[in-house]
Design a protein around this nucleic acid. Structure first.
Lengths: 209, 209, 209, 209
DNA sequence: CATGAATGAGTATTCATTCAT
DNA sequence: AATGAATGAATACTCATTCAT
């Protein structure tokens, strides 16, 4: 193969990936305030000094974490094809993808929420997380605009505010998931109703699996 | 006055109130992970041992904080009279009150968000914060139910999901406030439109100040 | 009577007695290193400041403790009449009294041992405890001398060394009592045999109860 | 030499040995209640955090201390050959070894007494110290049994009680050593007389040095 | 790359003691 | 005589970070 032969050691980038993964797990478990460099090292079976070799400081770790989060968000978003989908289908897809992530990788959103809080006071984190939030917001805004234009969404819909509503609702739902088992379907339906032209026949927007 | 001049001594409850306030300020500034007992003591000008006299441990401090938060939420909610208001006016009032708090006391919501994250892994915090969240959710749900019943809100509105949408949107907006100055009006209008019966004349729901 | 009328409060001396008693109990439970002024106050139901009113400092407390110990030792020793007893009976009485104390008031000897260790490095404690130890040692020495003189004890018995042996053995036995239930009888018999003239008929020295 | 020059680094076990030694010295000086982690670190010239690196907690320190004490006791006991010695010589050797230790390493017995007191209320210490005490007691008991069997000790000697007497006397003597200069010889002679068959010629049991 | 050992600067907590009331 | 509140000094322990090997 053209893949380099890895024998006993792990390539530098894999190490950083492992570190980012362990960091995420630990934040999901103990929160940002309970994140310990030593514990990360233990989790992936390396010495604390080795950890510092790969990630020189805790600030650098936060940066690595934020980047890993951004990469995963982007990758997840790029996974599904979006061409030839109606605005309603696109919005439904956004909601479904979010649900998938919450169910598949619940730690991801705990960390995302934690990072968003931290961004309020930490310049570095804000620099990395803000574009991500912005990207998501824009994505939804454009969908709502398109829907309003083609008549499938309300004519008086405010795309900016609508995007905030959609995103806020999704995050709120992911928060509620931690306490009890939550069914996404009602929120999904309600969100679609909220933006849609009243009296619309509303065909099933869910992708035929 | 016949009130004795207090120089050195402050009534016990005043101290705990001051501690709770300082704690809130500091969490707003440095987050939960940056909360230091010593800094709280310094902020209100007492010795660290005195702080521990009133609040024996950091765990007890978190409890005090959560309770102070709950008290303030409840007080704020009880401040405005709610009799003789239509569902639409009630919902608008909820949104306006939230906006007021965000503008007046921005730290409150930072702390609230921080505590909600912490509740995901801290039993004690969850016990105190959960009822608060529930109360809020119920409040909105009941308003939506009433509006649906009297025809001012959509007939196909799901009150539970609708409440999550309203709350999630507000929290999301309060988060966005930290970065840039945010105008609540568009969200307010959009939220009301979302739940309302289409084609409604929609009189101005804002209380005549 | 000339005794002052005690109504709600306790006379100063009673308070000091209560403090000494609580101190003893607490040392027996947690050792000298675990002795806390606050815990003493709690045990007798007074405020920590009140405790300091009666016993100004921890050093004063140790002094009070040592004195209370000495008083009790002396009182216990004076309880039984010693006239008209043979040396053998006197020695037996010493052993029996010790056994009684160990069974009746086990904390007393824990504290005594603790204070003896402390005396090795604490001038104040040594000043109060040393005379007590000396008194005990002299008491035994004189009994052994008397017994050697009247022929009931060995002619080559060294009273000084003998006293150390008797005292050391008793203390050692009291220590062993904490782990398992210890029967004093074998030690009692062996000690008497150790000092006695060989081949003596040895009548029962135990006081007819 | 081919030995590497160690400036900054000391082998892990050496550190723990040094810590145990410093702990012993400090307990001898200030007692258990005056033992401070910081002072141990200072005594051996390391940082407090380094001390905690090698001995994670004070409880672990007590364990280390107890083990070091046990090791030294065992080593000292194994130092002298015991074959081909008569029971009387063995007993004398026990006494002489004890005297040696008291004179050579007086701190050892202060610590031993302190640990024995602590064992009364501390499970961990008891677990480590008890076997040591038991071992010593058994050793003496067996010597007394052997002497009684070969006729050199009294026929009516109770080996168990006798062992308690011997041990208690020795410890008592070591205690008395702290105040004044004490001559062991009288106790030594008296103890041997206590257990011996009366009228025995008693050759000098002291090893020809 | 990897690591055992080391450390400075903290961090919550404790404790004897004091003082105004 | 009693107490609630306050405090300085200490105490065990932690953590990110460094460095010689």
């Amino acid at each position: 193969m053209n893949e380099p032969c890895k024998q006993h050691y792990v390539a530098g980038d894999d190490r950083r990936t492992a570190i980012a993964a362990a960091t995420r797990t630990l934040i999901a478990e103990h929160g940002f305030e309970g994140l310990r460099m030593r514990e990360i090292a233990e989790r992936i079976g390396i010495n604390i000094a080795t950890l510092h070799y790969h990630v020189p400081s805790k600030a650098a770790l936060v940066e690595l974490l934020a980047q890993s989060l951004r990469d995963e968000f982007m990758a997840q978003h790029a996974a599904n094809p979006r061409d030839a989908l109606s605005p309603r289908q696109l919005l439904a897809l956004e909601i479904d993808e979010f649900e998938q992530t919450v169910l598949t990788n619940p730690g991801l959103h705990i960390v995302y929420r934690e990072l968003m809080n931290r961004a309020a006071r930490d310049e570095t984190v804000r620099t990395i997380i803000s574009p991500l939030s912005q990207f998501w917001h824009n994505q939804i805004t454009r969908i709502l605009e398109a829907g309003r234009a083609d008549g499938s969404f309300r004519a008086d819909l405010d795309p900016q505010a609508g995007a905030s509503i959609v995103i806020g609702s999704l995050i709120q739902y992911s928060r509620e998931c931690h306490n009890k088992e939550v069914d996404f379907a009602p929120l999904r339906a309600e969100l679609l109703r909220c933006v849609s032209t009243p009296g619309d026949p509303r065909p099933d927007e869910r992708k035929t699996a």
